[in-house]
Computed example of a mutant assay.
Amino acid sequence: MTELLILYYSQGGAVKEMAQLMARGIEGVTGAKARIRTVPKVSANCETTEPDIPASGAPYATLQDLEECAGLALGSPTRFGNMAAPMKYFLDGTSGLWLKGALIGKPAAVFTSSGSMHGGNEMTLLTMMIPLMHHGMLMVGLPYSEPQLGTTTTGGTPYGASHIGGAMDDRPISEDEKKLCMTLGKRLAETALKLQ
Results as ranks from 00 to 15, higher is better:
residue 108 A to R: 04
residue 19 A to K: 11
residue 40 P to Q: 12
residue 66 L to W: 06
residue 72 L to N: 09
residue 16 K to S: 00
residue 41 K to P: 00
residue 54 P to N: 03
residue 40 P to A: 10
residue 112 T to G: 07
residue 77 P to T: 07
residue 81 G to K: 13
residue 76 S to I: 01
residue 112 T to I: 05
residue 58 A to W: 08
residue 109 A to W: 11
residue 16 K to C: 02
residue 94 T to W: 04
residue 90 F to L: 10
residue 47 E to K: 15
residue 60 Y to M: 07
residue 105 G to V: 09
residue 21 L to H: 14
residue 32 A to R: 03
residue 85 A to H: 00
residue 3 E to T: 14
residue 46 C to H: 08
residue 110 V to W: 13
residue 14 A to E: 00
residue 49 T to F: 03
residue 73 A to E: 10
residue 11 Q to E: 09
residue 87 M to K: 04
residue 14 A to N: 15
residue 70 A to G: 09
residue 85 A to R: 02
residue 47 E to P: 01
residue 44 A to R: 12
residue 25 G to C: 00
residue 34 A to K: 10
residue 34 A to S: 13
residue 21 L to M: 14
residue 2 T to H: 10
residue 29 V to A: 09
residue 101 G to A: 04
residue 112 T to H: 07
residue 9 Y to N: 08
residue 71 G to N: 04
residue 60 Y to C: 02
residue 10 S to W: 10
residue 96 G to K: 08
residue 100 K to A: 13
residue 12 G to R: 14
residue 66 L to N: 11
residue 53 I to T: 15
residue 52 D to W: 01
residue 54 P to V: 00
residue 15 V to P: 03
residue 36 I to Q: 11
residue 97 L to W: 09
residue 57 G to S: 01
residue 16 K to V: 00
residue 106 K to P: 10
residue 102 A to S: 15
residue 41 K to R: 14
residue 26 I to A: 02
residue 36 I to F: 01
residue 97 L to K: 09
residue 108 A to H: 07
residue 20 Q to E: 15
residue 61 A to V: 11
residue 76 S to R: 06
residue 101 G to H: 08
residue 65 D to M: 05
residue 17 E to S: 07
residue 89 Y to K: 10
residue 15 V to D: 07
residue 19 A to T: 09
residue 4 L to Y: 03
residue 85 A to C: 12
residue 99 L to N: 12
residue 25 G to F: 05
residue 63 L to T: 01
residue 11 Q to F: 00
residue 2 T to A: 13
residue 43 S to C: 03
residue 56 S to W: 12
residue 99 L to D: 13
residue 39 V to A: 07
residue 58 A to T: 01
residue 39 V to L: 09
residue 104 I to A: 13
residue 48 T to D: 08
residue 47 E to G: 07
residue 38 T to I: 00
residue 111 F to L: 07
